[in-house]
Write a protein that binds this DNA or RNA. Structure first.
Lengths: 212, 212
DNA sequence: AACACACCTGGCCATCTGGCCAGGGTTCAT
DNA sequence: ATGAACCCTGGCCAGATGGCCAGGTGTGTT
């Protein structure tokens, strides 16, 4: 460890969480809380003006979400490390956060010591993943590999949305100014790409996998 | 205000949040934090042994959720007031929490002062709803009134789930050991109750309204 | 120029869908 | 016991579905 304190910024839209993190950090004398932000946009601005070493970033925030903020921060200041701090309810966001350039991923039920370790690791450029986070990551990736053979085209998504509204093929055909055959063609593609046996199953899968 | 301090218990599965709330409470000298709990079950137990005046309760927790814990606490100790503290993402849980007997509902982005006011109100038996919470409550109730004519029966939900899996009527009939006619009967009921014109629309609505 | 890809169309056909009709049975509260 | 629910069944039928076949167009890449 160097003599310099690790300069930290907290980005979370909840007062209580900011206060809690702040309390955690005060226990250790190698940390210095230099700024706070209540949303992603603020987080980026604070990084601009203060150039902290590490940002503790919530994912679910108004105005700009944590993943987007992480991306912007990492693109513009590659010496600022971002640790994502979130609740286990948001499994599906982990991947996006890591792709955005977060070096750490912790759940909000971390202890002060674990948090401190993660911050020191991140500052040293070493990743710090909570075991639950790693697990959720595996789950998230394996879940996405199976169902798809391919991505849906724009037209297919359009048709899929109408299917989810309960429209029949003739109705969709009328709305899109194409023939029933064409709609059937798209529907067939959708079914095979989603691995569904019927339009109902396709819509069900699409909704659950948040394709629409 | 009496001379006695208001005895408070915090129930939240996130360390950080507990720490943050604790820090908020320390600012005021009429509060005394007497216990903490990391899930709903612990919260009930802590209430049993410590009989606090007010519980600050998170809704999303492992083992037993906050609504259930609130219900049990209110049933057994009607002199303990519960204030639900949650994030705005969980709009749809507000109603359940209030039905369970919570007297207050705050979002986690409250300030220390707002929290203090809410605790004092709750202790005096006066409700304390965050404006956003009230708004979400209205939204939640109005959203539920429209789509339903009636609740689904257990059997109908069972059929609905199979529909969402993409099973056809004959397949469902086979699984349930009933005839195709019976399945059709249930499907018809589901369609009319959900206001859907086809099974696909029914499944779509059911998924979006979190019925299944 | 050749190719892949997305998009469009028509016809044939077995199957599924969902509305309508009719009739059973149970259990539970009034 | 007289409903009121929920659950079960059969038949009839127009329409929708989805798989299969065959073809067409335009785009952009190589």
């Amino acid at each position: 460890m160097s003599d310099e304190k690790i300069r930290i910024v907290i980005a979370d839209d909840h007062n209580v969480v900011r206060s809690g993190l702040s309390a955690f950090l005060q226990v250790f004398d190698d940390f210095e809380l230099v700024g706070e932000a209540a949303d992603g946009k603020e987080a980026v601005e604070v990084c601009e003006s203060l150039h902290p070493d590490v940002v503790l970033m919530d994912l679910v925030m108004p105005v700009m979400d944590g993943a987007q903020a992480t991306k912007e921060i990492r693109e513009r200041f590659d010496d600022i490390q971002v640790i994502v701090l979130t609740s286990f309810k948001e499994d599906d966001l982990i991947e996006g956060a890591l792709q955005a350039g977060a070096i750490g991923y912790l759940l909000k039920n971390v202890s002060a010591d674990e948090l401190a370790d993660a911050i020191r690791s991140a500052h040293a450029g070493k990743p710090a993943l909570a075991p639950e986070a790693a697990q959720a990551l595996i789950k998230a990736t394996s879940r996405r590999k199976q169902p798809y053979d391919d991505e849906l085209t724009a037209r297919e998504k359009e048709v899929l949305k109408m299917m989810a509204e309960g429209l029949s093929n003739p109705e969709i055909a009328q709305k899109l100014f194409v023939s029933r055959s064409t709609v059937k063609f798209h529907v067939s593609s959708i079914l095979s790409k989603l691995g569904a046996a019927s339009r109902t199953e396709a819509v069900s899968k699409a909704l659950q996998q948040k394709i629409i």
